[in-house]
Design a protein around this nucleic acid. Structure first.
Lengths: 239, 239
DNA sequence: CGCCCTTTTGAAGAAAATCAAGGGCAGTGG
DNA sequence: CCACTGCCCTTGATTTTCTTCAAAAGGGCG
């Protein structure tokens, strides 16, 4: 049995230096835990929910649907990631969020978070930084979207680092619960082409990736091949 | 001679309902006006500037440089747009910002903005919403990046709406100071292909676009062809 | 006029999509 | 225990989209 508030504290701690009071506020933040089954919706576009959500367990994805019905994933969410920061500003969501695996998510009253942010500069900063990291990830996806090989490798680098950050790594391996179709939807290519890029990455000895289990034999080599630098994921260290 | 603070008030008003006090605070916000020449840098990646900037006149672009030296524009900025919201959270910028035209920008002490946001819920919300609109634009670019024709048309729709919003329209025409190379860098295709997509858009009677002057004869037709809906640019109306 | 920058055009080649089919693996049910 | 099913991964052949390379045409400006 994990203490879920720790997920929240760990995430905030990775973004800012928290005071004892801040930690206490976060640790005692009241939230309802909801279970979501794999491939089910967490939030739908247009919902003006006054609630903030935190992923406590499992993986989720933000995605949009194109006119032709195809789907594009625009973000991956891991334990500790927020969704619904838009709730703080009363905006409505413009994309969908669905569970990639079975998930447990915490629902938090948005006004409580807003009050907390108002009371604590550090928590306010953390929320901004979390959003800025999301934005950096989006810009990075755009930057890499020109070269499928690089984009696939870069995505795996990103997910590897983020999974590692939240303790999802065992023996240098982590389980990435994305099908090749999911990766295709995230990178903006077809599943067939994704398969070929993965084979190329495997063929060059840059990754081992089977049944979701990702192992990166030589991190520097992969990062160099994919032009990946992790700084944008860690604003605290960078500053 | 324009009253530049009006630019700021107009922008905030488009994001939230401002009280008289809020308007007064914004209108009297002290900022230094700096002129930037076309194609010159406004901010460079890595600068941990404690300053917030507002575009007062002219157009600017956010961009990143890839390992191979090529450039990708990840955002266009018009008068009233902020850059340096990251300053509020002490983060450093992970991309570059350069002037597309001669610009006038206002430099504002980040701590003053932070204080203002702390004192006024509406201003705080406005800053969040501004960032959320930026994020929506990024997600939309990702969503459209699979089809060059649609992406080019969609970008023109976006810029048309945004230019209109800030009063840059005359007789249904607006001047968009992007070269075809710029559009190519924004959409993630080559300038040659951009040229052909523009010709296709012209050939289908969807746009008139010469020397930067954009006219859209039938807005519905273009929007339908490019799967464009402007809601994401106007969070206030949407809510 | 001559220069520079941008747009346009053409032809060839690379990258990725599409279409279609087969193969592996886990779960289900007889 | 085995056949069946569904989902995902893999492969091959073909077509489309986009890039690359190269060159010419157009406009603004000294």
């Amino acid at each position: 049995m994990r203490a879920y508030p720790a997920t929240l504290v760990r995430r905030f701690s990775s973004l800012v230096d928290l005071s004892f009071d801040d930690e206490a506020s976060l640790a005692t933040l009241p939230f309802d835990i909801t279970s979501i089954l794999q491939r089910q919706a967490i939030l739908r576009a247009g919902e003006p929910s006054p609630t903030m959500y935190v992923i406590l367990e499992g993986w989720a994805a933000r995605y949009g649907i194109r006119a032709n019905g195809s789907r594009r994933i625009t973000g991956i969410m891991l334990p500790g990631d927020f969704c619904g920061i838009h709730a703080l500003s009363g905006a409505s969501l413009d994309h969908n969020i669905a569970a990639l695996t079975n998930c447990k998510i915490g629902k938090i009253d948005g006004t409580i978070v807003a009050d907390l942010a108002h009371a604590s500069p550090a928590i306010n900063r953390a929320l901004w930084r979390a959003k800025l990291v999301e934005e950096s990830i989006l810009r990075t996806w755009l930057l890499n979207s020109d070269d499928a090989f690089q984009a696939v490798g870069h995505l795996l680098c990103e997910l590897h680092v983020r999974a590692c950050d939240v303790g999802l790594m065992q023996n240098g391996r982590c389980y990435i619960p994305l099908t090749q179709q999911d990766i295709a939807n995230a990178v903006g290519i077809t599943n067939v082409h994704t398969n070929r890029m993965l084979q190329k990455l495997r063929g060059e000895g840059l990754i081992e990736f089977q049944r979701g289990a990702l192992f990166i034999p030589d991190q520097d080599a992969l990062r160099k091949a994919c032009d990946f630098t992790p700084a944008y994921l860690h604003p605290l260290e960078a500053a």
